[in-house]
Computed example of a mutant assay.
Amino acid sequence: MTEIQVPEAGADMRLDRFLRREVPGLTQGVLQKLLRTGKIRLNGNRAEANARLTQGDVLSVPEIAPPAEAPKQRQVVKMDEARTKELERMVLYSDESVIVLNKPAGLPVQGGSGIAVHVDGMLDALQGDHPERPKLVHRLDRDTSGILVIARSGRVASKLSAAFRGRDVAKTYWALLAGLPEQLEGRIDLPLKRIDLGQTSRSEPASRKDKEAQKAITDYRVLDKAGKKFSLVELNPHTGRMHQLRAHCLALGTPILGDEVYGGIFSEHFADQLHLHARRLIFPHPEGGSLTVEAPLPKHMLAGLNYLGFPAPEAEKPHRNGR
């Protein structure tokens, strides 16, 4: 067994995320197996994946075989003039601490197998005269469009990451659904469990007694409806589970249009894309006050709203309060 004492930088991190960062070669699958079998201990007791760490905690972890290959270097996307202009058009707000992008649907946030172009690889082009390369703070699914926050420094990234882990960030998504929820507004309090499907994963409802289940809560409100066939909803997640909104909408019996993984229908009247958009974000600005940013809807969602006769309000201009 190897003992790891949690430093100040690891305080308030989830145990599983801390270990994946600190232990070379520790994959998610191996970590889950070690936790299920009680082979990872926190201060001598059986550890849980979602335990929040404090400075000075001691973790006992079995020896992990080193990875067969050295980790690959960060992939930098080659930025020609067209791609640079595309990235510049994504910028909704920028100051000395943060950059807020309107990520288009279909663009991955990070690289991976078979992914050549992604947001993380493009961030060098946004560094400008700042001493550090910009850093990702949170994620959006590849097929989800909308607001993505970037930090200009490690210090800012730490502050914002803590805000996203806690309850200091208000997230609002818009989605076009196939169907109309029975109740026009409410709360979905349904734990989710990650299911590995070979090269992909999905989230499914889980029993609260399941040790692998994660708490997942989403508030929703119907903004407009076309009979019982289609509806536009506002979604406010209070937790950040993988595919949470997509799984929760399916649980309502109203999957998101264009979501082939979670049962969303396809129709000649709508684009063959996921109709889910990170519309608004309100978060603590690292230098004080709060920043509110709204992202314009992507073309495929605007087309869907127009077809249904739903109004499509313009996004408000970014504004910072309480400085």
Rank of each mutant, 00 (worst) to 15 (best):
K211T: 14
V149R: 00
V119Q: 08
L101F: 08
L274F: 07
E86P: 00
P108I: 06
I4M: 12
N321K: 15
V91D: 09
G253M: 00
Y173Q: 05
A151R: 05
E132K: 08
L274T: 06
K193P: 01
E48F: 12
P71V: 11
D259V: 09
T254E: 01
D95S: 12
Q214T: 07
L177G: 07
D168K: 14
V222Y: 03
L291I: 02
E86A: 15
S97V: 02
D141I: 14
E204F: 03
Q110T: 15
P318T: 04
Q244W: 04
E185G: 14
E260R: 11
P298G: 04
Q73C: 01
D168G: 03
A251M: 01
P255H: 12
A82S: 08
T84S: 13
A303P: 05
Q110E: 13
I282T: 15
Q73S: 05
L180H: 14
F18E: 06
K193I: 10
E185H: 15
V156N: 04
V137G: 07
L177W: 06
M1F: 13
R21H: 14
G263V: 03
E212T: 00
V58M: 08
R208F: 01
A295D: 05
P237E: 09
Y220L: 03
R20P: 01
K299H: 15
Y262N: 09
P108N: 07
V117S: 06
H269F: 06
K39R: 15
P108L: 08
M122V: 00
E204N: 04
R280L: 06
T254D: 02
P191L: 09
V119P: 04
V149G: 03
A216H: 01
A47G: 11
V137L: 06
K211A: 15
I265V: 14
G38P: 07
L308A: 03
T2M: 14
L59Y: 10
L140P: 11
L92P: 04
A49W: 07
T200S: 13
D210W: 05
D168C: 08
M90I: 10
L92E: 00
G44A: 05
V222L: 10
A68W: 01
A68S: 13
R133H: 10
G10W: 02
